[in-house]
Amino acid sequence: MDVFMKGLSKAKEGVVAAAEKTKQGVAEAAGKTKEGVLYVGSKTKEGVVHGVATVAEKTKEQVTNVGGAVVTGVTAVAQKTVEGAGSIAAATGFVKKDQLGKNEEGAPQEGILEDMPVDPDNEAYEMPSEEGYQDYEPEA
């Protein structure tokens, strides 16, 4: 019985440690998101679009440190934060509304985080759909 109880105690310690790591990862992701939003706020009209992409990228980098179902929630929060940063930029006159959601080359930025393969159960990952990809044929 002692062996059984000791095993359960060790398992509990492992769960607590994993929860603490997840909590730490979420806190880091939130900190990076805040950094990115402050970065966007300090940019001029020309830099705002690039700044919004930076927020998304920093958040995406930190999301990889967070495991399990938390990833889905962090990704949703990050996307809403990026959308909010863009709205703030438009409201303050840093950028025109028609410039939001495009990178410096004018290509749409939507789907940055949505296409990231995420499995809350950590069982399997699927690649994003290939609808947006084109076949590449090298020139002879």
Rank of each mutant, 00 (worst) to 15 (best):
D2V: 03
V3I: 09
V3R: 12
K6A: 13
L8Q: 00
L8E: 00
K10D: 03
K12V: 11
K12G: 04
E13T: 04
E13D: 10
G14S: 14
K21P: 00
T22L: 04
A27F: 07
K32V: 07
K34T: 03
K34W: 08
K34I: 04
E35S: 12
G36K: 15
V37P: 00
V37I: 05
L38D: 01
V40Q: 01
V40R: 02
V40F: 03
V40N: 00
G41P: 01
K43P: 00
T44E: 00
K45C: 14
E46V: 11
E46Y: 10
G47L: 15
V48R: 00
V48Q: 00
V48W: 07
V49R: 08
H50N: 03
G51R: 12
A53S: 04
A53P: 03
V55A: 09
A56H: 04
E57C: 05
K58R: 15
V66H: 03
G67A: 05
G67K: 08
G67P: 02
G68D: 02
V70E: 01
V70P: 01
V71H: 07
T75S: 09
K80T: 03
T81D: 00
T81K: 02
G84W: 12
G84M: 11
G84R: 10
A85G: 05
I88E: 01
I88T: 04
A90C: 15
G93S: 04
D98R: 15
L100R: 12
N103T: 07
E104P: 15
E105P: 10
G106S: 13
G106D: 02
A107R: 04
A107G: 12
P108N: 14
P108V: 06
P108C: 11
Q109M: 11
E110V: 11
G111Q: 12
I112Y: 10
I112K: 03
L113T: 09
D115A: 12
D115V: 09
D115F: 11
P117N: 06
P117K: 05
P117H: 03
P117M: 09
V118G: 12
V118Q: 02
D119Y: 08
D119H: 15
D121Y: 08
N122D: 12
E123S: 06
E123Q: 05
E123R: 08
Y125I: 13
Y125H: 13
E130P: 12
E130T: 11
Y133S: 02
Y133F: 13
Q134M: 10
P138N: 05
